[in-house]
């Protein structure tokens, strides 16, 4: 048995602002195994993003949290940036518009790797190359608005893995991007995680996207964990009707067309 990175037990979260409203998460039990790629799948309102924030310890102060998350691999709550990296959906909003890309990545390196500014910039350049930004030297001095959406997300990934964290949390990192860029970003994440032996927590609404590279998937619906299991087993033998409906409603190139060849 591989070691456990985190154990989520009985986790419930509700946002205090609307106390009468349904909780965002309701009694979640889930293990994150070290080195696995775990996909959290859910539609809007499923609580999947709340789970990502809870694991990262980034819930707003007003949230009411019940249950616990243990970190056997760290022995304490992990430190953002150093112990885990976080990639948000909106790369544009998670980068500082008045700092250059190089400064933002180097800042992480300087803080968590204990290196000097010069060395940190070297690390930033190396990372930009790793996330396959074309012309990394030019990108170092570029401001976020000068990059495309896909390139900004690459920069965010570079900053997230800068301090060589054990865990990478990606919350819908591709849903603001078009499909071609999405495929590139997903394969990049997959490659980085493999090479560095990181654990990946990948939050998405797209079950097919997750099935392309995740070892395990956990399906969320209306604040509850519906089922979790190995990707292949869950897709081939969904235990719950909700999972089956997600699979049935998925549209890919094997789905029979809704219209016949010629116009009606």
């Amino acid at each position: 048995m591989t070691p456990l990175l985190a154990r989520i037990s009985g986790l419930s979260v509700s946002y205090r602002a609307d106390r009468d409203a349904a909780p965002a998460l309701d009694g979640i039990d889930l293990d994150i195994v070290a080195g696995e790629r775990l996909a959290i799948i859910g539609e809007s309102g499923s609580g999947k993003s709340t789970l990502a924030l809870a694991v990262a310890g980034l819930l707003p102060r007003s949230a009411v949290v019940d249950g616990r998350i243990d970190w056997p691999a760290y022995g304490k709550a992990p430190l953002p940036g150093r112990d885990y990296g976080f990639v948000f959906q909106d790369a544009g909003a998670s980068l500082n518009p008045v700092l250059t890309v190089g400064e933002q990545i180097a800042e992480v390196a300087e803080r968590h790797l204990g290196v000097g500014w010069f060395e940190a910039f070297g690390r930033a350049r190396e990372l930009l190359e790793r996330v396959r930004i074309p012309d990394p030297d030019a990108a170092l001095g570029a401001y976020p608005h000068q990059l495309s959406g896909g390139q900004r997300q690459r920069v965010c990934i570079a900053a997230a893995i800068c301090a060589r964290p054990k865990l990478l949390i990606a919350d819908e990192p591709t849903s603001a991007l078009d499909m071609v860029v999405q495929a590139e970003i997903v394969s990049l994440l997959d490659e980085l995680v493999r090479e560095d032996g990181m654990t990946l927590l990948f939050i998405t609404h797209d079950i097919a996207l997750a099935s392309g590279f995740a070892d395990r998937i956990a399906v969320f619906h209306k604040a509850r964990l519906v089922e979790a299991g190995s990707t292949f087993d869950t897709l081939a033998h969904p235990a719950q009707p909700y999972t089956a409906s997600l699979i049935a409603n998925h549209i890919d190139l094997d789905t029979p067309p809704l219209v016949s060849a010629g116009p009606a």
């Binding site: 097919a208 099935s211 392309g212 990707t231 897709l235 033998h237 089956a244 190139l253």
Partner: peptide, 26 residues
């Protein structure tokens, strides 16, 4: 979809995520 002739169409076809497995045909 079956025979994309332009690189753009080819990339769009390749980018569509596919389900790794489906119920019933595993």
């Amino acid at each position: 979809v079956a025979n994309p002739s332009s690189p753009t169409a080819r990339a769009l076809v390749d980018a569509v995520p596919r389900l790794a497995a489906r119920p019933g045909n595993s």
